[in-house]
Design a protein around this nucleic acid. Structure first.
Lengths: 220, 220, 220, 220
DNA sequence: AATGAATGAGAGTTCATTCAT
DNA sequence: AATGAATGAACTCTCATTCAT
């Protein structure tokens, strides 16, 4: 829950009768956060389409006009959702992978960490998926970030001799396949937009594919 | 062009001064087709969001009101798009795979056939992708159809001994991964919503993953 | 009253329970007229600023959305107001001047006809004046029309020897002065945006200026 | 430039780190001036409509709230613009006319002085013109001031025998005509809201009308 | 005196759907 | 069966004004 506390908690409303002294900038940041939070929740629960300014501000206990003190437009806040949350995701995964040594171990930990993240922040998956349509620039950027990092990781593993000797172009394609795998499995195991329960079998399948492919081993 | 003739042709407008002599049901089907066609084109070119009734009917050379003689609502026609086009895709793939013998050959042919299809019917990719958001029921159904067929195919290959001896659950996960791979690679290699140019390297990468996994072969 | 009947009557609302059979295009024209009429009244009475779509449609007994079936935007109808009413004004003046022979007589009749027009159609003055700000393109066009016609009229009179032998450029400036005179006198003698009562003294002053200038005649 | 220094200079911003040591009332007057100045510039450049409080205060380097320490409302400052600038215009014209002896000379000097003023203070023309719509009370007052003075001037000239023997009412109408002439000619010769280039021909035309009227002199 | 965030009414516009013709 | 005008709810966004700091 610690991870979600800052960003995904459903509690982060603006509290007009706050407990005590706050500086103006503190208060201002709180309001901005409340709006961001409310937008993330709305998009996560009902999609970008239904995340109207009216609903977002209502959820944040603010007047509609207040929104425009913090964001230039509806598109503006949409374009911020994925970068902010995507960075959190990356940080989470990196932290979980730290300490792993082999390519294989890193892959498995990273795979599990991805699902751990969307389990704790169920909004994220929908925000990520719909961003392709509603915040395409942000989505492209996010994808580029991830794909680039992933590609470097694969290239190093290849150069170290841990991964098959494939061309950069081929590795680039594989990066997309692996990212795709995570995303679709998340969708596959999501229940009611809310909970993703990844069965061990899925991890097995993923790792089997990575380590041995699908074909029956000749000697077995 | 034969494939696209029925569904993706830009010609299928209603011709008010048609060559005459049609039965009422023929005429009725023509109108319905024209609407469907126009909707598919609009969604394919501009996305579900911009496919308003007004634009769809305009493209079909019909009045707005006519739409509601054939579809109960805007959502209604959206929900039909994917099932109809998805069936065409499946038919196309099945036909291309016919005659292949080994699992490996079938996989490669099916993989290529998928890209062949979206190359000939560029609308399809967008309709498919956005359906997750705008026609979720249809999308789930489509996915279920495909996944079920794919799973059966994998199970038979496993039982025949061509594919590794994984549990049904694990195969189910793999199905998602393989479908995901195709979808994301299509996005990856799409240019301007219009053309998908799949490089051979991508096929290589995909087949390598399937046949050998990613790890360096021990003896090499 | 005949002049104002078509355009400026306050009665031209849409009557939902109309008396009898009308073709669709008749009905359609009526609705368009009602909107135009309502807009003219609103602008005439309260100015462009307060002529919101909401108020215009309310006055025409129509829903807000209906407005956009007939005009592409608020600016659109604003841009139509002056051309339509300005043409009526010109027609009225031309008709009143018909039959006059000398330059002097034509001028006086035209001068009186202008005030006769705005007396019968009190909206017009405000629409004309504010158009400079709210419908500048229309205003420029209207001004150009009038100024061009007026200039030709002065040139012919000069060439005939009725008017002093001034350069075209000087006549061009005079045209502006004469139009300005009418416009400001209308403002001067307007009471409550509603009634313009032109005193005979004003006609005398205007004609005196035109025929003799302001200076004391030397021999008198 | 001396004329524009007080009112039209683009420099008159509030300088937060001023050279210090000012009495409270001095400082207060400075702030008020800065707001007035900013408003005049905004209205002059973009019109009353776009002169929002936000834009005015931004241009004056002040916070929005500060505005309301000096003016009761937006309308309030609009209503001050024309009286203040109009007085400057009158002062300028009076000064330029000083020393002229005949009615004719005074008229020509005053005519030229008007255009000299708006040439040096290009804001003024727009402020003046739009005031009729956005600050009607101020506009009426301004007009009354000017018309009254002008009328007295004409009356004296008439009584002296320099001007034709017209009734007061007729002279009242002529005042409007002469003011109108200036205003419209300014508009006629304005280029891009910024520069008014009055050609000599326009002066000729104006003075010809005043001294001889438009008709061909009988003996010529 | 100066600040600037909060407010909420109101603006123009779009669009799925209805329904009389 | 086809039409297309009418509807009204919902949308994003602006802005004068207020007020606690």
């Amino acid at each position: 829950m610690t991870l979600a506390r800052h960003v995904a908690s459903g509690m982060a409303r603006v509290n007009p009768a706050g407990p005590a002294r706050k500086t103006r900038v503190q208060r201002s940041e709180e309001v901005r956060d409340a709006l961001f939070q409310a937008a993330a929740e709305m998009v996560g629960e009902h999609g970008y389409i239904d995340a109207s300014i009216s609903r977002i501000t209502q959820r944040a206990n603010l007047a509609q006009g207040t929104f425009y003190n913090y964001f230039a437009s509806r598109q503006d806040i949409f374009d911020e959702l994925l970068p902010v949350l995507g960075a959190k995701m990356l940080a989470h995964i990196r932290q979980q992978v730290r300490g792993a040594t082999s390519f294989e171990e890193k892959e498995e930990r990273s795979f599990r960490a991805f699902f751990g993240f969307i389990r704790r922040m169920p909004y994220f998956l929908r925000i990520l998926n719909e961003a392709e349509i509603f915040a395409p620039k942000a989505h492209r950027q996010h994808f580029h970030n991830i794909a680039t990092g992933y590609l470097g990781f694969l290239q190093k593993a290849r150069d170290r001799g841990e991964v098959a000797d494939l061309s950069d172009e081929a590795l680039g394609a594989l990066v997309y396949i692996l990212i795709a795998a995570r995303s679709y499995l998340a969708l596959r195991y999501a229940k009611d937009h809310d909970l993703v329960e990844l069965p061990e079998e899925a991890v097995t399948a993923y790792m089997h594919l990575l380590t041995r492919g699908l074909l029956k081993a000749p000697g077995s």
